[in-house]
Write a protein that binds this DNA or RNA. Structure first.
Length: 877
RNA sequence: GGGCGCGUGGCUCAGUUGGUUAGAGCGUCUCGUUUACACCGAGAAGGUCCCUGGUUCGAAUCCAGGCGCGCCCACCA
């Protein structure tokens, strides 16, 4: 068979993916699985419909595809549901930006037209991300692909909303919310990001009669102050507590009362807080406790309202601030101006400073108990009452959901325990419209369909995007219908994603699923880390250090990219990725290619044995034993989602054992066709979940065009475990390596003939392979013995339990060799001594387990023997 | 302020419940054109496992404290 020297992934990957997709094997309904086969389900974290594949996605795809392929090969009913997320605010922003270039705002178009534009944009770009997912080799079931905004999912969203409303879990409230003046919408608590910004802290009095000075970084909000809070124990201000002062700001008069609250820090600033109930979360809480008035002075577009007074109304907050400061200064009210670094809250989507303000919004209550209709959660009875928070804590605390790595449990509990009611209404147009209708008489109707009768107007707001993605594991399977898929594939097996969306998404899914189904959404959560650059920095557009996965696939192939993200790091840890790393795995892929190339070219007939072939020689028994060991380790590792260990184990077996030793020996020993083919075939299977493309390609070269590795059975009994073969071959290998060391250290060209004497415990077993050793070493002779011989003027080298002697009279520097040997003797003697000491320690003998003591004794004997041999040889030199 | 993680050869990282003379890949050095592969082969060098103390027969591994780095949450008016 003629094959190119270098594997070119670009030439084969797309065709292979197409063949998989066309075969229908991504759909579990088409798999030949046992009737009672367990299901293995993953709901793919839906990328933004308008996004492009970045390394975070690539990581997700690599890991989840490995899980799914492994499950599929093991005969499970493997389903991976793909889809995309409408990503409400993010997508609306993109389209608005696009329109802005044509100087159009969404208001110019109107809601309907604008949404059509968004839909167009989504349809166009969905294509991109879906094809990029294919490039990664993701074997997800495209026939079940969903979009958070499609009809089925919209139905699920409405259903959950309506049920929650009737259970009293969704309510409308006028509360202070995080408002993004640019997005023109509320934001959930966790949609706020913080940025360190230098700013000026002003200390001033409202007027010259007011006895207390206050500090602020946002002077303009002080126009809305209705109280000043001090600590109850603060002797400076005690006398003022309870008093009310009338403060005049231009044409408005504010009544400011002095209140005492333990939340106030006496040591910060003046120890007094100007309370702005309408525009600060903490102030709002203070005002609520003490009954202070809430005066909203900043509007939704970041402009001062009438309540701010004639001097300020209509001004953007920035200008109002300048004007107010100027006024304070003119009045001589400013006592201090200092520069401080301040944590500014900004919108996580657009970076605009967040403006807290009071607003009428929809909330999900996380603390209100509701009655469970089903009893699917272990330990929770049907008909009992629990709050969302209690359920979400229960399922993780009781281990019904296992989070990997476990340390994230704590993070989860900490967040969940402190969770406040969730503001779910958004004032943007793109998203799921809230299923609520209002009438002029302020009647409210909550339902999936518009109510009968005149005058009903649907609530203009849409839902937080996480409301719909919170339903993802079951809405994609057909809920609220009681579908076959839902029964077969839910709860899902593993939810795999980056730890950065533990709160955003995972916690929401747990909340929503325990509510809607009274069940868990998934049994395990596997969290991967962030992908960083070579220096450990986050990849970002501004730093320009981002790596485009598609470019990497073009350059090195999808297999190399996948493996470079999975090997060499543990779950939950950030991973550094850079071209050289991927290149290293590209080299490995090429190595595998060339191993196969050699096997295919050298074998008489390409027929892969179905059963383990009969071994003829020590090398045969050894490689089959190594294969058996490897298969066991890899299987166990993959069950634990330890892809790193699986990959490293396979790499060692493939490269260091199979290629470096067995394939080399096959050039010297006859009759290895069956085993070469067998081992190669098994390795392809074991590698397949991690490197699907090259393995599938090679598998077809072995088994014919129509073969499909993707649905091949996972190796259960690969090779025969044979401890003796492993031990004997180990000595054989040590012997060879020891001689090679002598050759290299003495700069002996391969053409220089040498006579080798090897002392090995298993010399008898190795005897028949002396000839093979001689060939591998290009030695004139190899003599094996288990007793110390006398070899004059020999270089000595030890490896494991084997000692090798090569007489090099005239070739080797005897004095140098002597010194080296002396050093080696000393080192060994020191070691012998340390083990002796350990064994002489009564406490050690008494406390250590028997196996450990036995092992130590074994080490001592071996080291002593080595020392004896070395000293003897040294004497002969 | 609360929580989490990390600190192992030049670099990137493994190291399961404490017991190996501490591992891998890359890089470095030496040698190599033996008909799979130079995206290769053979060999070598290179480590006070951050520091201090403790528990233990025994600690890279467990505990306490310290130093350095990173992340998350809350947030100062």
């Amino acid at each position: 068979m003629e094959l190119p020297k270098v594997y070119n992934p670009k030439e084969v990957e797309d065709a292979i993916y197409r063949s998989w997709e066309e075969s229908g094997c991504f759909n579990p309904d088409n798999l030949h699985v046992a009737k009672d086969a367990e299901s293995f389900t993953i709901a793919m974290p839906p990328p933004n419909a308008t996004g492009v594949l970045h390394l975070g996605h690539a990581m997700t795809m690599a890991l989840e595809d490995a899980m799914i392929r492994f499950a599929r090969m093991r005969g499970l009913r493997a389903l991976w549901v793909p889809g995309t997320d409408h990503a409400a605010i993010a997508t609306q922003n993109v389209v608005e930006k696009k329109l802005a270039k044509e100087h159009i705002t969404r208001h110019d178009l109107g809601r309907k037209k604008f949404l059509e534009k968004v839909a167009e944009h989504v349809t166009e770009s969905q294509h991109t991300i879906k094809n990029q997912i294919r490039k990664m080799g993701a074997s997800c079931d495209w026939s079940r692909e969903r979009y958070t905004l499609d009809d089925g999912l919209t139905r699920a969203v409405q259903e959950v909303f309506v049920r929650m409303y009737h259970d009293g879990l969704i309510y409308r409230g006028n509360r202070i919310v995080n408002w993004c003046p640019r997005c023109h919408s509320t934001l959930a608590d966790d949609e706020i990001a913080y940025e360190e910004k230098p700013t000026t802290l002003f200390t001033f009095r409202y007027n010259n009669d007011f006895p207390i000075a206050i500090s602020t970084t946002r002077p303009e909000t002080k126009l809305g102050d209705t109280a000043v809070a001090v600590h109850p124990d603060d002797t400076r201000y005690k006398k003022y507590v309870g008093k009310i002062y009338a403060i005049r700001f231009g044409d408005v008069v504010r009544h400011v009362q002095v209140i005492a609250d333990t939340e106030v820090d006496m040591n910060f600033g003046t120890g007094a807080v100007g309370v702005t109930p309408a525009h600060s979360m903490t102030d709002y809480a203070l005002a609520e406790r003490h009954g202070a008035e809430v005066v909203k002075i900043i509007g939704e577009d970041g402009v001062m309202l009438d309540a701010a007074g004639a001097d300020y109304k209509g001004l953007p907050v920035g200008e109002a601030r300048q004007k107010f400061i100027a006024w304070l200064q003119a009045e001589g009210l400013v006592e201090k101006e200092e520069f401080i670094v301040h944590n500014l809250s900004v919108c996580y989507r657009c970076g605009t400073p967040v403006e807290p303000l009071p607003s009428e919004q929809w909330f999900v209550s996380v603390d209100k108990p509701f009655t469970l209709q089903y009893g699917h959660i272990q330990g929770i009875k049907k008909g009992s009452k629990y709050s969302l928070k209690e359920l979400a804590l229960h399922v993780v605390r009781e281990g019904l959901i296992e989070i990997i790595p476990g340390r994230f449990n704590k993070t989860y509990f900490n967040w969940m325990e402190n969770l406040h009611d969730w503001c779910i209404s958004r004032q943007i147009w793109f998203g799921h419209r809230i299923p609520v209708w209002h009438r002029k008489d302020s009647a409210i109707y909550v339902g999936v369909k518009q109510p009968e009768g005149e005058g009903w107007i649907q609530d203009p707001d849409t839902l937080d995007t996480w409301f719909s993605s919170g339903l993802w594991t079951f809405s994609t399977l057909g809920w609220p219908e009681d579908t076959h898929d839902l029964k077969t594939f839910h709860p899902t097996s593993v939810l795999e994603t980056g730890y950065d969306i533990l709160f955003f998404w995972i916690a929401r899914m747990i909340l929503m699923t325990t509510y809607a189904l009274n069940d868990i959404p998934f049994k395990q959560v596997y969290l991967h880390g962030l992908v960083r650059d070579k220096e450990g920095r986050k990849m970002s557009k501004s730093l320009g250090n981002g790596i485009n996965p598609i470019v990497m696939i073009e350059r090195y192939g999808a297999d190399a990219l996948r493996v470079s993200m999975m090997i060499g790091n543990a779950a939950g840890n950030d991973v550094r990725l850079y071209a050289e790393k991927i290149e290293g795995y590209r080299n490995f892929v090429n190595k595998l290619w060339n191993i196969a190339r050699y096997v295919l070219m050298s074998v008489k007939e390409i027929t892969v044995p179905e059963a383990v072939p009969n071994p003829q020689t020590l090398a045969d028994r050894w490689i089959l034993a190594r294969l058996a060991e490897t298969a066991t380790t890899v299987t166990k590792a993959l069950i634990r989602h330890d892809f790193s260990l699986a990959g490293e184990t396979l790499r060692a077996c493939t490269w260091n054992d199979f290629a470096d030793w067995y394939v080399e020996i096959s050039k010297k020993e006859e009759g290895k066709d069956a085993i070469l083919l067998y081992v190669l075939d098994m390795l392809l299977k074991l590698w397949h979940p991690l490197m699907p493309f090259v393995t599938e390609h090679l598998y077809r070269l072995l088994h014919g065009e129509d073969a499909q590795l993707i649905v091949a059975a996972w190796p259960k009994h690969a090779g025969k475990y044979d401890a003796k073969a492993l031990a004997h071959f180990g000595q054989f290998r040590d012997m060879i390596q020891a001689v090679r060391t002598i050759r290299a250290e003495n700069h002996l060209a391969p053409t220089v003939g040498i006579a080798v004497t090897a002392v090995a415990p298993e010399a008898k077993e190795l005897g028949p392979y002396a000839h093979l050793a001689a060939e591998l070493l290009r030695a004139t002779s190899v003599a094996l013995t288990d007793t110390m011989p006398f070899v004059p003027h020999a270089a000595v080298q030890h490896a494991g339990q084997v000692m090798v002697l090569v007489p090099l009279e005239g070739l080797v520097d005897i004095e140098r060799e002597k010194k080296r040997l002396e050093k080696e003797c000393q080192r060994t003697a020191k070691y012998v001594q340390s083990v002796e000491q350990k064994l002489a320690n009564r406490a050690f003998i008494a406390h250590a387990p028997v196996e450990v003591v036995v092992a130590e004794k074994g080490k001592l004997t071996a080291a002593q023997e080595k020392l004896d041999k070395l000293s003897e040889q040294l004497a002969h030199l």
